[in-house]
Design a protein around this nucleic acid. Structure first.
Lengths: 142, 142
DNA sequence: CGGTATCCACTGGGATACTG
DNA sequence: CAGTATCCCAGTGGATACCG
């Protein structure tokens, strides 16, 4: 808050002109917003990241993703399947075997997802520090 | 589903070895998971995207983000501020003026966020098509 | 094994009203 | 203008039980 002058509007850090946010900041029911909500979902993120490596069976996913309930995993997988992100293959064997894998579309997405995860990992400490700083100022009397 | 052979495990589309998902697929309360949940949040995504362009006042954000309630916007901004993603500047003028802008940390994040948005825009049609395909098969008797 | 179905508790989040 | 506080409903999502 060095220069508390509302009129001054120095360009922020990054302002590539090749992309205009105002273009997609559309109505709430907008398709982009819907899709964004789906792929930026807590479990979707994890599922996509795991499937990046190889096909996985339902149980493998369930085991790998700590804290996910069967219902949520099923729901998430169905949505991702519907969106063409993952492919579900059922093997008609006596103990049912179902495998999930990324489609081409899903593969193209995982790169972005991973960037997000990598960013998070890299800046984990910085965020933790910021939080400590913020929380410390919480009860600052003077 | 060409070769329905569970034993076969052809490498998926992309398998860069420079990153191991199993490394971060950790416990539920894990910091990475927490941060991921926060930044992949519906409103956070939009706020960060908007602030990428320039500082914005509270009302400007509220107006730009269709469907957000005052409470959610405040909550989101506070969390982002706590995480060191956005900076909040209060101008002690008679009609209060508060501006929000991305911090350096926030700027480094927005690039990834934008990639996600760009991906969504680019593949919007493909996803819509996948959905139509999926939904059409819903009530397929034979 | 890989689900679906049901129940239900919790909380995210909207609407509204008040404040500095 | 930019919040905070309160109320309260709806949907998220966990737990459990049962099915193909």
């Amino acid at each position: 808050m060095s220069t508390a002058n509302p009129a001054a509007d120095p360009p922020s850090c990054c302002d590539d002109a090749d992309y205009d946010v105002r273009q997609w900041d559309v109505r709430e029911g907008c398709e982009v917003r819907q899709i964004l909500d789906r792929i930026a979902d807590k479990w979707s993120l994890l599922v996509i990241s795991l499937l990046e490596r190889r096909k996985l069976r339902f149980t493998e996913l369930k085991t790998s993703i700590d804290g996910v309930s069967q219902r949520m995993l099923t729901t998430t997988l169905r949505q991702l399947e519907r969106d063409g992100i993952v492919k579900r293959t059922v093997y008609p064997v006596v103990p049912p075997r179902v495998e999930y894998e990324l489609t081409d579309l899903g593969c193209s997405l995982h790169k972005t997802i991973r960037a997000l995860v990598v960013w998070t990992e890299k800046n984990q400490a910085a965020i933790a520090a910021a939080r400590r700083r913020y929380d410390a100022l919480e009860g600052t009397p003077d």
